[in-house]
Design a protein around this nucleic acid. Structure first.
Length: 424
RNA sequence: AGAGGAGUGGCAGAGCGGUCGAAUGCGGCGGUCUUGAAAACCGUUGUACUGCAAGGUACCGGGGGUUCGAAUCCCUCCUCCUCUGCCA
């Protein structure tokens, strides 16, 4: 969430940023926050004063009791009763104000970076670059949902039987290709100095709030209600939350973690024409990179992460493009997001395979993730993450783009991992 | 899952109703000494809110209660350890 003091000090910039996102009622929300904050401070000052008084009286009573002046002590006791009453009710007010303030702040999205283009939807995203030749397929080329049947490598019906729609079963070379991609992505990340972590894939409520999935995306996560735990929609949640309530030394920065996890998304109500096959699933595998950065270096780190992800796509010989998301299409918690899309030749469309974002202090503020600066002050850090990469659409693109009459050619870099160079 | 024990500052560990944001040791930081280092010695060393500041307030696992006053007593939840059971 945004920091109140920044809202206060840079109100114009905040309002401009919210406008870029087409955030409705921005002015009213900001005014409400400032008002609540004002009330909060006044209430706290009053309460602190009462508490100070009653602390002083309690000390006095202590001293009197010690010197045996019981009656004098009893006299003062009477006074403390009303102080207590008053401070208690102020305390309740304060709690309620803080709660309202937090709730109001949760509803305000992050402020876009100045380079983020204005815009309403995906149509307004800016194409930063395109790379790689778009393959021309032989006549008779088919989309991946036909290929997986032809070669019997991914089985949706079987997944439906044991779980439901959107939970495919990978079989034979299909399963091995998955495993190969995961290992390839992890090895590449290790080469780039990321530390591998294996986090839990169920998280508690606090973690959901920490990275911003809660409260606004509640319906998109699977919820194990008996234990009040959520299945993670991305490894971003557990990995970033490793650093919740942490104060890092400046010299420990940057933190670079990579983790492989399955991801679960309910994707409620989003099933339609474009989501056939592997394009959208309830469970999928993803390797995620997370960085915790000094505020001064975070945008440089974002560019490096973008370049890193592009390197993976190049090694996989996939044609891709990079988008800078517009204000209207960007995620709630992000300041700047690059989407990487690969071209899926048989579907003749671009598929998002990675999203790399800088959240600046938005998550860090919720997480209370800070560092101790040279001058001993603790300050919020910047968090970043990116998919590197999400598997299903990579698989879809490999299958479609590399198909021929002989079978599906496996990209060279993967062959040491798969142990085969063709699916036939 | 059942029985018992425990949760205090970066770590270890005292305190068990007032003088406790908290002894002491280790670690960290700064300094003296030294050609340099070690040792020794001196000093310093949590977080947040609030205030122009001085200062004030809160925090001893979380929440609630008793009391004029709680790290200390009570309730509740969570976590960890030991034993028993179960289990990949």
């Amino acid at each position: 969430m945004l920091q109140v003091n920044i809202i206060k000090e840079e109100k114009e910039r905040i309002l401009k940023g919210l406008a870029k996102r087409n955030f409705p009622h921005a002015e009213a929300s900001i005014e409400e926050i400032l008002q609540l904050d004002q009330n909060r401070r006044e209430t706290q000052q009053q309460m602190d004063q009462l508490l100070a008084e009653s602390n002083a009286l309690a000390k006095e009573i202590g001293a009197l009791m010690k010197s045996g002046q019981k009656e004098a002590a009893e006299k003062i006791k009477g006074k403390t009763a009303e102080l207590k009453e008053a401070s208690k009710s102020l305390g309740e007010q304060l709690n309620s104000l803080e709660e309202q303030l937090t709730r109001a702040l949760y509803l305000v999205p992050n402020i876009p970076h100045e380079s983020v283009p204005a815009g309403k939807s995906a149509e307004d995203n800016e194409v930063v670059l395109e790379n790689g030749a778009i393959p021309t397929l032989d006549k008779g080329a088919v989309p991946h949902w036909d290929l997986i049947k032809k070669y019997d490598i991914i089985d949706f019906e079987l997944g439906t039987k044991i779980t439901g729609a959107g939970f495919p079963v990978y079989k034979g070379k299909g399963a091995r290709l998955q495993r190969a991609l995961i290992n390839f992505f992890l090895d590449e990340a290790l080469q780039a100095d990321y530390m591998e972590v294996q986090p839990p894939i169920l998280v508690n409520e606090e973690s959901g709030y920490g990275t911003g999935q809660l409260p606004d995306k509640e319906g998109q996560m699977y919820h194990a209600t008996a234990d009040n735990l959520y299945l993670i929609p991305t490894a971003e949640v557990p990995i970033t939350n490793l650093y919740r309530d942490v104060i890092l030394q400046e010299k420990e920065l940057p933190i670079k973690n990579v983790g492989f996890t399955p991801c679960f998304r309910r994707e409620a109500g989003s099933w339609g024409a474009h989501v056939r096959g592997l394009n959208r699933l309830h469970q999928f595998d993803k390797v995620e990179i997370v960085q915790i950065q000094h505020p001064e270096n975070s945008y440089q780190a974002l560019e490096e992460m973008s370049a890193y992800v592009q390197g993976l796509l190049q090694k996989l010989e996939l044609p891709y493009r990079v988008l800078r998301l517009c204000g209207g299409d960007m995620g709630f918690t992000s300041s700047l997001t690059y989407d990487m899309e690969v071209y899926s030749a048989a579907q003749e469309r671009w598929l998002e395979v990675s999203s790399v974002s800088n959240f600046e202090t938005y998550q860090a503020n919720r997480l209370k993730l800070r560092y101790k600066a040279e001058d001993k002050k603790t300050q919020l850090l910047h968090t970043l993450n990116g998919s590197a990469l999400a598997l299903p659409r990579i698989v879809a693109a490999i299958l479609e783009n590399n198909q021929s009459a002989e079978g599906i050619r496996i990209p060279k870099v993967l062959v040491p991992y798969t142990g085969f160079d063709i699916i036939d």
